Each structure stands twice: as structure tokens, then as C-alpha cells.
Amino acid sequence: MSKILKVQNLHKTYRSGEHDLNVLNDVSFEVERGETFAIVGPSGSGKTTLLGLCAGLDITNEGDIWLCGKNLADLDEDGRARLRNENVGFVFQDFQLLPTLTALENVIVPLELRSIKKAAEQGKELLAKVGLEDRAGHYPSQLSGGEQQRVALARAFANKPSILFADEPTGNLDDETGTKIEKLLFELNKEQGTALVIVTHDLELAQKTDKSIRLRSGKIEESYS
């Protein structure tokens, strides 16, 4: 295995009024290609901030992040965006589907942005994998929360990402639906050989991953493997 994500001595501070707020303090970990990894911790522990930094959505104050072999500090905003478009998938707690597009259209947005031929055909195949081939023409408002998250999963895997970042992917779902989404997420991840980094407060979900870290007050409290 080779490292898909390496975080070294990461610090993140935000200015709050006249004071500095330390959100992350000396965080280091590594994720191998194809590995599943969880970041757990209570609200306010820095989980989502850490995920955003790892994906290049924000920049660090100190420390280094290597994503897909590139140091994010060496890239400008456009460079980080290109790296994400080519290598990264996202799944969010609130689905973030475009309300004016059908399920199929939402899935193929990443493919069309890259001018992929037969985007619609690939999109239909992905919807079939998540069990929604008969809902391709439905809009998000016509889908249940679980169905919307399945569309979001299909979209996340559309570009065959090297790494997928999932921020509380079952946070807005009931237990039964959440369990189905978890199963689907791990199945698609294994099938495509994608590294998976999950932010969650759900310890049961974290225990299903290969490795995990627990954050508290911006520091790694424990590591598990």
C-alpha cells in the first residue's frame, strides 16, 4: 500500500475577535490507498475542520498535508480545486443535491464537468448500484432522505475518486436507513478500491473502519487500528 493522505503536525487557528481560537493542535496521521479511516469525537472537537483541511477546502496555519502525493501547501486555490476534481469524492450529512436537477442529472454533474462521454449511461449504472434505477427522473424533493443520500453516494463515486471524504454521512437518517447507507458506502468503497475518510460521532460506525482517531479539543486523544 502507498499513502493517499498524510497529515503531519497540523495546527489550525481562527481569529475570534481579539483572540486566537485553536481548533487543531499538532494532529498527525496517515491513510493508505484503499483504507477506511474514521475521525471521531464530540461536537466542537475539530472533526469537520480537519476534514476540510485534508480535502484542501481550507489551508493550515502550521503543518503539512499530502493528498494523492501532493503537498497542499504547494498548490494555489485553483490547483487544489483541480486535485479535488480529479481525485476526491464527497458525501455530506445534508446530501447537497441540486434541487432543480433530477437524480440522474445530479449524479452525472461531475462527469459532464469533465466532458466524459456516455455520462448518462454511467450515471444510470451508478444509480442501479445504489438501487435507484427506477428513480432516475425524480427530483430531490420527491425522494426520501435515504434515497437522497444514495443519490449523493452515486454522485460521489462518479469520478472514480482515489479518496472519499464523508462528513456524518448518516447523521440525518434514522437508524435503519443509516445502517443501509453505511453498508452501501463500504461496498462501493471496496468495489472501487477507494480510500474512505469518515467524520462521525458514531462509535459503532468508526469501529467498522480499518483505523480511527479520536479528537478532543483539537488534539488526538486516542488512535485505533
Score class of each variant (00 low, 15 high):
186 F>G: 14
20 D>V: 01
65 I>V: 13
39 I>S: 02
55 A>E: 03
59 I>P: 00
62 E>Y: 15
147 E>C: 03
130 V>G: 02
137 G>K: 15
75 L>R: 12
15 R>N: 15
201 H>I: 06
209 T>M: 15
6 K>P: 00
65 I>N: 01
115 S>M: 06
87 N>L: 01
191 E>D: 13
223 S>F: 11
91 V>L: 12
28 S>W: 03
10 L>A: 07
104 L>I: 11
128 A>F: 07
210 D>T: 12
27 V>A: 13
30 E>V: 14
43 S>A: 12
6 K>R: 13
48 T>E: 05
127 L>T: 04
137 G>T: 09
177 T>A: 04
67 L>G: 03
204 E>N: 12
88 V>L: 12
94 D>T: 13
34 G>Y: 03
98 L>E: 01
202 D>R: 12
85 N>Y: 11
178 G>W: 09
154 A>P: 10
112 E>D: 12
212 S>R: 13
105 E>H: 08
26 D>P: 08
195 A>T: 03
196 L>R: 11
195 A>S: 14
158 A>P: 15
146 G>I: 13
56 G>H: 03
56 G>W: 05
184 L>F: 03
170 T>Q: 02
216 R>W: 05
142 Q>S: 08
101 L>C: 00
65 I>A: 01
23 V>T: 13
138 H>S: 12
178 G>H: 13
95 F>D: 01
169 P>H: 07
53 L>E: 04
209 T>H: 07
206 A>M: 10
194 T>R: 09
60 T>W: 00
219 K>I: 12
121 E>A: 10
210 D>L: 08
150 R>A: 09
101 L>E: 01
203 L>G: 01
162 S>A: 14
11 H>Y: 14
127 L>N: 02
16 S>E: 14
146 G>P: 10
193 G>E: 06
94 D>G: 05
162 S>C: 02
33 R>W: 05
154 A>Y: 07
127 L>Q: 08
211 K>D: 14
50 L>P: 11
19 H>K: 14
159 N>P: 06
18 E>T: 15
74 D>K: 06
87 N>T: 12
170 T>P: 06
36 T>C: 07
213 I>C: 11
20 D>I: 00
44 G>H: 10
25 N>F: 03
13 T>C: 13
39 I>C: 03
142 Q>C: 02
224 Y>P: 02
183 K>Y: 01
76 D>Q: 07
37 F>P: 08
183 K>C: 00
28 S>M: 03
159 N>D: 10
96 Q>M: 09
